[in-house]
Design a protein around this nucleic acid. Sequence first.
DNA 1: CCAATTGTTATTTA
DNA 2: ATAAATAACAATTG
Length: 282
Amino acid sequence: MPELAEVEFFRKRWSAGHGARVLAVRLHERKKVFRGTNTGWLKKKLSGAMLLGSETAAKQMLFRFSGGGLSRAESRGWLGLHLGMSGELRVEAPGYVPARHDHFILVQKDRQLVFNDPRMFGGVLFAAGPQPPAWWTRIAPAILSKHFSVDAVARFLKRRGRAPIKAVLLMQERFPGIGNWMADEILWRAAIHPARLAGSLKPAEVRALHRECRFVCRGALKYNAGVGGKMPPELNAFMPDSWLFNHRWEDGGRCPRTEKLLARAVVGGRTTCWSPARQRLA
DNA sequence: CCAATTGTTATTTA
DNA sequence: ATAAATAACAATTG
């Protein structure tokens, strides 16, 4: 489910708890989402801590804490959440009883912040120290930042020249936050067939790809991230019908620009939707 | 029972 | 050695 904008959408839900203390941490320590994380330590550090604020980068979320079990020298706690394929964040009432797949809960006086992930491809990370940890600072610069230049994209496409462009768009090291539907939306707008080899794109196509990456990120954030309270299956209600998004899963769906039938196949290992009338292989 | 799923990573293949 | 393809992870739904 969660790509760039949905991740931002879920982070905003938990911002209800900014400025409030964590009274208790509830977690299922043997669950896969805690792989590589010391849950006893995390629990100790966060109990009594103040949730200061949060941010997103790509598909990651970072929540900042102070106080609680953190020492004076550590100063800050850094909670990283990744939603994987099926994760979501919710806010529940103080008396809420954890349900199936609620793997991690921050209990506050007026609410409970719930991390739920049935398939557990997501993850919970934690670090303590004055500066944010490497797993956060190493995330590639955002597509909507000035570091995402046509040149950088062109160089990356050359380096990954023999892979299908669809697969390359999913590489977080250069296209942070892009997921399956955004990649298809970008290629559809740029009129590039998803199976084209990345190294075969002409300069004009690389420029179009760069432009549409930014357009789709902006639009996704505008339509998906700012809408309060609604769950993702309903998010598409806010996407314009002029986007591929609203047609891509529907059998017999038609391209909003050509009205011709859309095609679906596995490209680069993922189910891919495109408009054969707009996106040609040659 | 089979196939599908908006993600990532380890392993295998080329 | 490098990069691309594939399998695996886990749970649920159709």
